[in-house]
Structures are given as C-alpha cells and as structure tokens.
C-alpha cells in the first residue's frame, strides 16, 4: 500500500436496523485520502456525512466493507482497540465543543493523554503547550463556562491536537459560532494543515467547505462528487 495513503475504504456501507425497516446510511463508499490532505465532506442532513465521519473516526464500525487507517484494517477491531486508535491517531473537534463543563482548560486538554497513560507532569506540560499553540496561554485555568464560543472551540482544537494525532476530524466546527469567530477557527485549521496535519472537515455549509482543498459530496449515503478545490481560502 502506498505509504502516503492515510485512509482507504473499500465498499464501505452502514445499514441501521430500525424495527421493521432498514435505513441505508452509507452505501459502497470507496475513498482514498492521503496524508496532509485537507478534505471537506459535504452534504445535506441525512446524507450520511456524520455516519461516514463516525466510521472514519473509529467511533462506529461499518456494516460491510473494509476500512484501512494508516495501513491498518480497522473494520475488524473491537471496541477497546477502536478506543485506542481514537486515542492515538485521531483528534475530534465538534460543533458543540464537547468540553467537560466542570473541568478547567488544562484538564480538558489533558483528557486524551490520561487515556494513553502519559505521566502527570508530561500531561500538564503538553496541555499547556497545546493551549498556547491555539492562543489560549492566558486562559489555562479557566473553565469552559468562563470562555467565549471561539475560545471554547480553541480548547477543543488544543485537545484534538495534544496527542499528536494522524488525523483531525472537525464536525461542523463553526456551526455554533458567529461568522467572524468562525473565520478565526477556520484560519487555525489552515495553519494546522500547513504544519502537516491531515484534516477532515464535515459540514453542510458551502462557505466553510471552501476552506478545504478537496471536497467530497454525499447524498443519500453515496458519494456524488469528489473534486479538488482550486482556490482554498487562507492558502
């Protein structure tokens, strides 16, 4: 397999069993994403983009098909092995930030490191460094409730980065932010990409998707379009 390939799927599908009926969320997805790509997965709600992100993000397993991450076959792993992959290879940024409300910034950012067994001192140092990298060096001990939306999303990004993942998933990262703050966050992602990170952006907004270099469009669980963005914003 090509060393540059980060993600490869073969005939990936996901079917939800809803009482009597079957809902096909994804059907026969064949996809290759290389290292240091900046990809946007687009589609209206119900198109299967969130399901795709869940599977690519190792939060969920496909019903059928193969998924290779970094050359490793993911589709056959059990829950605990998936948890380990998520912990070491994947960083998540969510629309609703998903921070622990009662923990301060450092504790929130430390969380992935806790589950990979990093020592307390190193955890602390790396969390501070990650927060400084996203411009929150002066908010280390604040709790999420004491921060603005943009700042919260920065904490989430710091948390996604702190374990040096191969891949960052951003699920509607600007969905809960005003336009200006959203742009700031998107600028941050562009910077991350420049530093060599691979980013998968999940969005339904055309404006946001245009920050990516490659846009994959989904509808009714199938890829209907996959093209290079000639003029990505911020690049």
């Amino acid at each position: 397999m090509d060393n540059n390939v980060l993600i490869k799927t073969e005939g990936l599908s996901k079917i939800y069993q809803m009482e009597a009926t079957q809902v096909v969320a994804l059907h026969d997805i064949n996809l290759v994403i290389n290292h240091n790509e900046y990809v946007a997965i687009m589609g209206p709600s119900g198109s299967g983009k969130t399901t795709l992100m869940s599977i690519l993000g190792c939060l969920d397993s496909p019903t059928d098909g193969k998924y290779y991450l970094d050359g490793q076959d993911i589709s056959s792993l059990d829950d605990n092995q998936l948890a380990e992959i998520r912990n070491r290879k994947i960083g998540f940024v969510f629309q609703t930030f998903n921070l622990l409300p009662r923990a301060n910034c450092i504790k929130n950012v430390e969380l992935p490191l806790i589950y990979s067994g990093v020592s307390k001192e190193e955890r602390h140092q790396r969390a501070i460094k990650a927060l400084q990298d996203v411009g929150l060096g002066d908010r280390l001990t604040h709790k999420p409730t004491e921060l603005s939306g943009g700042q919260r999303q920065r904490v989430a990004i710091a948390r996604a980065l702190v374990n040096n993942p191969n891949l960052i998933f951003a699920d509607e990262p600007t969905g809960n932010l005003d336009t200006r703050t959203g742009e700031e966050i998107m600028k941050l992602f562009a910077d991350l990409w420049k530093k060599g990170n691979s980013i998968i952006l999940v969005t339904h907004e055309e404006d946001i998707a245009r920050h990516a270099h490659r846009i994959i469009k989904l509808r009714d669980g199938v890829i209907i379009d996959d093209f290079r963005n000639p003029n990505p914003i911020f690049v």
């Binding site: 993000g57 829950d79 998520r86 912990n87 998540f92 969380l111 992935p112 589950y115």
Partner: peptide, 16 residues
C-alpha cells in the same frame, strides 16, 4: 451521558 461519550471519543476504553 455526553461526558462519557466525550471520554470514549477521546480514547477511554470500556473498562476505564
């Protein structure tokens, strides 16, 4: 529930 979801997404195993 959400906190547990977050922990799992960030790599917490079932047993943890």
């Amino acid at each position: 529930t959400r906190e547990i979801g977050i922990r799992k997404a960030l790599g917490a195993k079932k047993r943890e």
